[in-house]
Simulated assay, not measured.
Amino acid sequence: MESAVSVSEFSIQVNNSIQPLLKLAGQISGLETTFITYIDPVKQIQRVIWVDGDGDIQIQAGSEVNWSDSMCRLLFNSDAIVSENVPAEFPKSAGAELGMQTFIALPVRSTQKIVGSLCAASSKQHHLPENAKYQLKLLAEAVSLHIEQWQTITELAERYEKAQKSLRKVKRETQMLSQKANTDLLTGLLNRRGFSERWAELKEAESGLVTVLAIDLDNFKPLNDEHGHAVGDQVLATFGKALRASSRSCDICARMGGDEFFWIFMNGSVKIAEEAAERLRKQFTKLTNTAIQSCAFSIGIHVEDITKGDDLLMAADKAMYQAKSQGQSLTQLTA
């Protein structure tokens, strides 16, 4: 972020310092619109960097033209710096199409190489005196430093943007890998690793009551043995879908292994937890087919302050086993 700010500030400084030169070029030339361009010899593109004036000739900063179509190229190749009758001298040029009558272009050099141009244009005919040509040549020499600074700014900005794109790509890939590493592929819920991370974050960030539901599928092993692992996997996948549909995105829903699950959310009460359990039961029943309708589940509920930490998980797990041993679908322990 510091790099972006420094580049931005540098750009503003360069823009502010170039404006007086453009205004001076307008006064010397007597033309309404003055602008400075950058010439890219590799891409064969000419780009307008800075513009000053509100004349009839509409030149926009940031606009580009192929070097082969450039008015500057036409003047440079004719060894002139000014055309006082553009329609007559260059009838099919872009300048003529823009309505230019007078056009001035001086090459801007850096280490003897042309890097840009100092230009002025008008929809009216003007005569440029010799002393004005000399003064504009001096201005063109002063402009070279600004174009070099602009190139530096542009390169820094491009490098920064490229680095940011790479960083965003790495972050996306890291998030995807982390999500895969923390997700149970069969159910779409958190796996044990993902649960451990979310549970640790919850304990550190939150305060107040937390509701823990420990869930275990009933008769899962006999069903798995009788119908095969494919049906067992279907039961687990269906239960995962039901749990996702019954919970909120802020809840922690995880498959801890086998047919054991946790569903955790902040605040709540035993009544709210029982309503959530009933909602899960209905959703699971709705999604199950005939082959697996016999598979129910037991739930243990524990609601207590989150400062109790991992003891909450143990209490809910104990309640769940009591429910299973008593043949109940739901039991509860409260502090």
Rank of each mutant, 00 (worst) to 15 (best):
S110A: 13
H302W: 04
T331R: 08
V212L: 05
A132K: 05
S70K: 12
V143N: 04
L202T: 13
I153A: 05
I28M: 11
F265H: 11
N77K: 10
V210Y: 03
S196E: 15
W150F: 15
D310K: 06
E158M: 14
P129S: 12
N219Y: 14
D56C: 07
K282Y: 13
H126I: 12
A140M: 11
K165E: 11
L213V: 02
T285G: 00
G116I: 02
K324F: 05
S78Q: 14
A200I: 03
F76S: 07
G300F: 02
T34E: 09
A214Q: 05
E9R: 09
S117H: 12
S325V: 00
G300R: 02
H302A: 09
A319C: 14
G116W: 12
K324D: 06
G26E: 11
L280N: 05
I59V: 15
I306D: 08
D184R: 00
Q60F: 14
T187R: 01
Q149V: 05
M314C: 10
L75G: 09
F262V: 00
V212R: 01
G194Y: 09
Q151E: 14
V270P: 03
A105F: 04
Q101I: 13
M320F: 01
A316D: 08
P87C: 03
C295Q: 12
E32C: 02
T37C: 12
D259E: 15
S83E: 06
Q151K: 13
A25D: 09
I264G: 02
V65M: 10
T152W: 06
I299N: 03
A254D: 06
N191G: 04
V212D: 04
E155F: 10
A237T: 13
N131K: 06
P129L: 09
I57E: 03
D310W: 00
Q27E: 13
S249W: 04
V143F: 10
L213N: 02
R192N: 08
A230T: 11
T334H: 12
D69W: 02
A105Q: 07
E278Y: 04
I28H: 07
I57F: 01
I18V: 15
Q326I: 00
Q46H: 12
F261Y: 14
M266E: 10
